[in-house]
Write a protein that binds this DNA or RNA. Structure first.
Length: 494
RNA sequence: GCAGCCAUAGCUCAGUUGGUUAGAGCGCCUGAUUGUGGAUCAGGAGGUCGCCGGUUCGAAUCCAGCUGGCUGUACCA
């Protein structure tokens, strides 16, 4: 016998930026997704699932300067055949591939919804992980603004289906053509366009004066002292851009007026203005007022592939943990060039993506999720080994009534079993020992009542009396098992 | 990516100018309690002080590197 060698044990650690999700989260997420999907399907969107992995060229994520080097922001690898593959980083690129591949069979316009995990190899931050869930709708093959309006409508309706009240959310629209037109009018050089768009996007964060600096000479962050290089525009150019992005109010009429006043002869700008006018008309026809859908000049949506209207859903209430407004929980827009990468033919498309975790987080903080979902309500305790079959029958009876029920399969006596029932959050304990079986009865204990009573004063002193009176416990004829459980479960709702 | 701060038990943290067997609270396990959880009491388990080097008679403590975390910033389909 050798000495007990200290084995090098594996460390049960999580890969950076990844996490485990447990029952309460998963059930709440499932409920939320289900409610949104019901809206999607009501509008004729149909489900699609595509694989987690795609070829990197399909995702379009090779670096522009080195066409065999995948973008650092995606999880890419090679396996047996020497081809680069990657975990998908959104659901839109796979959709484009799917549509291009099955173009002949799919009648256009094609509407689909899809939910699934996506992966991004970026710096993880609080509330931001490397694996997360998206819930998308898209309409491919329809160039009309009616399609964009449909997406906007579905987004608004989804928020309301989740119990988010009007005023607690805002669907915000802008238009990439309007932005392009504005940059054209201002005379913005092509090479600074990305910097300018990024700067405009930051107005919520740094304010109009911050944007002014970012568009001009650059800005030093007051907190960290970090300097961000500016776009180097002239003051006159900056004024025009700020006049748009910082226009008073974000109701649709003001937006349309502001754009009309700034856009001049720009062809892009005029086209964008026409799109937004039509959107406003359609939304009004549908009864979607400014309490639901607004036009917001600062919505840019990064440097993505968007070509027309862009949309973002913002939650307007304050996040109690950060003290800041909750912000964006969904985004999207029109992307008319994405499918054409495969087909060579222009294929218009528009859609949006809901960030499931962020939205769920918000619902939790709004108190619009039920924390007791996902917890099994009933435990059948087992005190008499010779009654194994009876205990199984009791549990089955509860299940047959549609109430989830766990049979205690651990060891130990009564204290241990009740302790278990308490810690795991059961609502009802089914108790049956020789006395009950003898009399054809069953005892039921209201665990939630006990939890409440234990908070009250005098609990500690009177323990003996408590044990004798067994508060919250009733003994009923065996036949009334289910009815009595229902009664106890109904007590504490609300 | 860049900058600043941080890393001691499952969790939150103490740990004196570097000094011998590293502590507390909470949690966990066992018993008082083989038919009653949440209270109370008694006992117990759990730490190579993130890792690796260096300075020193001696390092949780000082120094360098690494890893991980937090905050800000940049990027974000």
């Amino acid at each position: 016998m050798g000495k007990p060698k200290k084995q090098k044990r594996a460390v049960p650690r999580l890969a950076r930026g990844f996490r485990d999700l447990t029952a309460a989260d998963l059930v709440a997420r499932r409920d939320m997704i289900q409610r949104v999907i019901e809206v999607y399907e009501r509008y004729g969107f149909q489900a699609l699932e595509t694989p987690a992995i795609e070829y990197v060229d399909v995702l379009g994520k090779f670096l522009p300067e080195a066409d065999d080097q995948p973008d650092a922001g995606i999880f890419a690898f090679k396996y047996d055949d020497d081809e680069w593959v990657a975990l998908r980083y959104d659901l839109t690129a796979p959709l484009s591939r799917y549509v291009a591949k099955n173009f002949q069979e799919l009648g256009m316009p094609f509407r689909r919804y899809q939910t699934g995990q996506v992966w991004r190899c970026e710096k993880p931050e609080p509330g931001r992980f490397r694996e997360f869930t998206q819930l998308d709708i898209d309409i491919v093959g329809a160039g009309s603004i009616l399609a964009d309006a449909e997406v906007v409508t579905v987004l608004a309706e989804s928020m309301e289906a989740l119990g988010i009240a009007r005023g607690e959310y805002r669907v915000q629209l802008n238009d990439r053509k309007v932005l392009n037109g504005l940059l054209e009018v201002v005379g913005c050089a092509a090479e600074v366009v990305p910097t300018v768009l990024r700067s405009l996007d930051k107005i919520d964060k740094v304010g109009p004066e911050g944007v002014r600096l970012l568009l001009g000479p650059g800005r030093e962050d007051p907190e960290s002292g970090d300097f961000t290089k500016g776009a180097g525009l002239e003051p006159g150019q900056v004024d025009t851009l700020l006049a748009f992005v910082d226009a008073p109010g974000d109701d649709r009429a003001t937006y349309l007026e502001t754009v009309a006043g700034l856009i001049g002869e720009s062809k892009d700008g005029q086209a964008g203005l026409a799109e937004m006018r039509e959107l406003d008309e359609i939304l009004s026809e549908r009864g979607l007022g400014p309490d639901q859908v607004v036009f917001t000049p600062s919505v840019v949506r990064g440097l993505a592939y968007y070509t027309g209207p862009v949309v973002e859903v913002a939650l307007t209430f304050t996040d109690p943990t950060s003290g800041k407004p909750f912000g964006s929980v969904a985004g999207g827009g029109r992307y008319d060039d994405l499918v054409g990468r495969f087909t060579g033919q222009p294929v218009p498309a528009t859609g949006a993506s809901i960030g499931v975790s962020r939205l769920l987080d918000a619902l939790n903080k709004l108190g619009k999720t039920d924390p007791s979902r996902g917890i099994c309500p009933v435990l059948v305790t087992t005190f008499d080994k010779s009654r194994r079959a009876d205990y199984q029958r009791l549990a089955d009876e509860v299940r047959a009534a549609g109430i989830p029920c766990e049979l205690y399969v651990g060891g130990g006596g009564a204290p241990k079993q009740f302790k278990y029932a308490d810690r795991r959050g059961f609502s009802v304990a089914v108790v049956a020992g020789p006395d009950e079986f003898e009399a054809g009865q069953v005892s039921l204990k209201d665990l939630r009542l006990g939890r409440e009573l234990s908070q009250s004063e005098g609990f500690a002193e009177d323990r003996k009396a408590w044990l004798e009176s067994l508060p919250g416990q009733v003994t009923v004829p065996r036949a009334e098992l289910v009815a009595q459980i229902r009664e106890i479960l109904g007590r504490h709702s609300g």
